[in-house]
């Protein structure tokens, strides 16, 4: 850098930028241990009560009003988490298969509609969530389909297929088709070539796409909000509802656990990537 003062200012700006990104998360984590039940922004000593309440271990002798709230919301919380995991698992499998198949078709075959498909596959990703959400809502209700986990799964698959497609497509662009041609020349069938030659090379892209799909599905709020039935609430929708009803200290505890989970998932992703580079 030609200008040391300029670099110093830039460094300062950048560090403030990262502080801006992380300060809010630090606030939640810090205050999830705050004992003050009235104003949770005023520090009143360390406590694990909110976590205990979350897992249904709230002190039975405590204020009866607050206890009722904990016990009820614990069951709902666990049900919502279970729903989220089911939706994310099924969605990830379906959209990974659909997205990967499309990426292979577009990269390895020449046909007239190729340009159309390339644009078409990007559309669900670029469509605002709210438009897709209400479109699906009208569609399901007009067909007379009951809103349930199935409708959420269908909704998630529409846009997550696009995400998987993008990631796998980026990977396939860097793979030399010569290996597959050699395999075909040596008499392997299309299926064997696909399974033994192309898919192993594609694996990192597929895993990356699946991981992304899982994370986005777990976090999706807007589309799920419109097409979730009353008994099929997912975790983000449940938390959104809690926040709308008023800010309570347990939300801090849930939020902290979610932040922790996201750090673990991101670290897992990083580790998977570094392992691939080593190979």
């Amino acid at each position: 850098m030609r200008n040391p003062l300029g670099w110093l200012l830039l460094t300062l700006f950048s560090l403030l930028f990262f502080a801006f990104i992380y300060a809010p998360l630090a606030v939640i984590i810090g205050y999830s241990f705050n004992a003050n039940p009235i104003n949770m922004m005023i520090w009143d000593g360390f406590t694990l009560d909110w976590y205990r309440g979350l897992f249904g271990f709230a002190d039975r002798t405590a204020d009866p009003n607050s206890r009722a709230l904990y016990v009820e919301s614990t069951d709902q919380l666990i049900a919502a988490l279970k729903n989220s995991l089911i939706v994310a698992a099924v969605t990830t499998s379906v959209s990974t298969v659909l997205g990967t198949a499309t990426a292979i078709a577009l990269a390895r075959y020449r046909f007239r509609l190729r340009g159309f498909y390339r644009g078409f596959l990007l559309l669900p990703m670029m469509m605002p969530d709210i438009v897709l959400g209400i479109g699906l809502l009208i569609f399901f209700v007009t067909l007379g389909m009951k809103l349930s986990l199935l409708t959420i799964i269908i909704g998630h698959c529409t846009f997550l297929t696009s995400y998987v497609f993008i990631i796998v497509q980026a990977r396939i662009a860097g793979i030399d088709p010569a290996l597959e041609e050699a395999s075909a020349d040596l008499g392997a069938s299309e299926w064997v070539t696909l399974r033994k030659v192309l898919l192993p090379q594609l694996a990192p892209g597929i895993v990356g796409g699946a991981l992304l799909a899982f994370v986005i599905s777990m976090d999706d709020l807007v589309i799920t909000y419109f097409i979730a039935g009353t008994d099929s609430t997912t975790l983000p929708v449940f938390i959104f509802g809690m926040i709308r009803r008023g800010v309570k200290p347990e939300i801090n505890a849930i939020a902290t656990l979610l932040i922790l989970a996201s750090v673990l998932i991101a670290a897992l992703g990083l580790w998977l990537r570094s392992r691939k580079i080593d190979k």
Binding site: S14, Y22, L25, D219, L258, S262, V263, I265
Partner: peptide
């Protein structure tokens, strides 16, 4: 720092908004 910028992408949107509410 690239890891630090992608990390919020993995953490829940509603949680990050809730922080600003507080």
């Amino acid at each position: 720092f690239l890891f630090l910028i992608t990390l919020p992408f993995f953490s829940s949107l509603i949680v990050r908004l809730y922080a600003w509410l507080l």
